[in-house]
């Protein structure tokens, strides 16, 4: 009990209030889903219940990792990267000759997160965009496989960047020193995740309420201009008003983040939709009941995480 009390005592109150708020929202969702199930027996709410239960599990895992500190958060996101990359490489076209490259791609995960753990930012920055970028085509050339060479290389590059490098930034945020931050490093990660997921939900809700004009019917037939703009404004407002509680950004930096992050989330979402459409699947797997695969859940995050990090580093953080 003493240890638990100490874990909480060390946390910044903004983070604890934030986590409590998210927990409250999900509890409310669970109550509504439960009430709907009981009151309206003619309809099947199984998927809604699964969806909310999965949210509870995901929020519990992430909260526990954030409260436990950077080692746990790094380990958690290394696992997320692995499951995401495995999903991606399993859906994308691969060939028997590529098995070695697939293994090498997995190997990039422990190496990438090792530099997060060692806190060597200068190497983390270039490890995948430069070294893995160059090693992948070289390895493939050594194997002597030239059939569909360029397309295969591009496929591996995409997987490495989105699933490992971009997601790794979530873990790297945890290495920001506390003195630069209003709610600790965990608060920084917390706000990224909340803003990204809030944007997804807000786009969906505005689209359901007002959606009429389709925005990109050939990729995501359910997405509308109304949903996109409504989500944009809502998330920008959230960032503008709640951002100062969790991030060191102010004025221009905060305004840029408020404008850019919702668009990044939308872009990540539709990019993954385009990939799924190309491959011919609706969900990337059934790992998360009610949600689909892990890539369906983190598609926006693969775009928002590196941009959030970059804007923080550019406008505020001395360390990076």
């Amino acid at each position: 009990m003493d240890i638990i009390a100490r874990v909480f005592a060390d946390q910044h109150p903004h983070l604890l209030w934030g986590l409590a708020g998210v927990g409250g929202l999900v509890a409310l969702g669970a109550v509504v889903a439960g009430a709907l199930t009981v009151l309206r027996r003619d309809k099947d709410y199984t998927e809604l219940r699964q969806r909310i239960f999965s949210w509870v599990v995901m929020i519990a895992l992430i909260s526990a990792a954030l409260l436990a500190g950077w080692p746990a958060t790094t380990a958690l996101f290394a696992v997320v990267s692995f499951i995401a990359l495995r999903e991606f490489l399993s859906l994308a076209p691969t060939r028997r000759e590529d098995r070695l490259i697939v293994l090498a791609a997995y190997l990039a995960i422990p190496v990438n997160y090792a530099f997060v753990a060692l806190d060597i930012y200068g190497i983390y920055l270039v490890l995948i965009p430069v070294y893995a970028f160059l090693i992948t085509p070289w390895l493939m050339a050594i194997i002597g496989q030239t059939r569909g060479y360029l397309a295969s290389v591009a496929m591996f590059h995409w997987g490495l960047m989105t699933c490992i490098y971009n997601i790794g930034y979530v873990a790297y945020l945890m290495r920001t020193p506390d003195y630069e931050l209003p709610a600790g490093a965990a608060g920084l990660v917390f706000f990224l995740l909340v803003a990204t997921e809030f944007n997804d939900v807000a786009q969906y809700v505005w689209g359901k309420l007002l959606g009429r004009r389709k925005i990109i019917p050939r990729v995501s037939p359910n997405k509308t201009w109304e949903g996109f703009i409504g989500g944009w404004i809502s998330t920008a407002a959230l960032i503008w008003f709640a951002g100062p509680l969790f991030t060191p950004l102010e004025d221009t930096g905060l305004a840029v983040l408020a404008l850019v992050l919702p668009v990044a989330g939308f872009a990540g979402d539709v990019t993954m939709s385009a990939i799924k459409r190309d491959i011919g699947v609706k969900d990337t797997s059934h790992l998360i009941p009610g949600h689909g695969g892990i890539l369906d859940r983190i598609d926006s995050l693969t775009f928002t995480a590196p941009i959030y990090f970059h804007l923080l580093a550019w406008f505020a953080l001395e360390t990076f």
Binding site: F82, R86, E87, L89, S90, L91, T94, R96, R99, V102, L103, Y106, S285
Partner: peptide, 13 residues
């Protein structure tokens, strides 16, 4: 695959 020794993680349905 038949004939290989090293397993490579890939999703199976």
């Amino acid at each position: 695959p038949k004939g290989e020794v090293i397993p490579v993680p890939m999703n199976c349905a």
